[in-house]
Simulated assay, not measured.
Amino acid sequence: MISLTLTGELEERLKAAADETDTTAPEIVARAVEHYLDLREVRLNSARAAAAEADKGYFVSQAKMHAWVDSWGTADELPPPEADINCFSTH
């Protein structure tokens, strides 16, 4: 069991939402916390995946990214660019 204190305005908004949706304030809070934690988990997993990908050392150059983005919405839209920079290359 967790207890929390809400400011007057937030408490009123929560009560109004509960009344409008025929649910209880604790149910709304529980759903909101679950939603927040789900989003947080997605963001963390995305960040971890991006870091693991970056650790491989392959990147798309700024020039290729700009060319791709500049082509969006045109008749000659380019496919997403492939990595053209290898940070671990000895060349």
Rank of each mutant, 00 (worst) to 15 (best):
R40M: 11
A17D: 07
D84H: 09
R13L: 10
H91L: 13
W72Q: 02
A16M: 01
H35G: 14
A47V: 08
T7Y: 08
C87L: 14
A63L: 08
V60A: 06
L39N: 15
T7F: 07
T5A: 13
E34L: 10
T21I: 02
A54W: 06
A54N: 13
E41Q: 11
P81H: 02
V60R: 05
Q62A: 14
V69P: 02
T21S: 09
P80K: 01
T21E: 10
E34A: 15
S46M: 13
A16W: 03
D22C: 07
G73S: 06
T74V: 04
E53S: 09
R13M: 04
T90V: 00
S61Q: 03
E27M: 07
V29D: 03
A30Q: 10
I85S: 11
R40Q: 13
N86F: 10
I28L: 15
M65F: 13
L10C: 04
A52K: 12
G73W: 03
D70H: 12
Y58F: 12
A25D: 01
A50E: 13
W72A: 04
S3V: 05
A54Y: 03
S46K: 14
H91E: 12
V33R: 06
R13E: 06
I2L: 01
R43A: 15
R40L: 13
D76I: 00
A67Q: 12
D84A: 08
A54T: 09
H91Q: 11
T23K: 05
L39M: 15
D38R: 15
P79V: 00
E53L: 13
A52D: 14
D55K: 14
T23W: 05
L44H: 11
G73M: 02
E34R: 15
E53A: 12
A83E: 06
L78I: 02
L10T: 13
E11T: 02
A52V: 09
P80L: 03
A18H: 01
T7M: 04
G8W: 01
L78N: 00
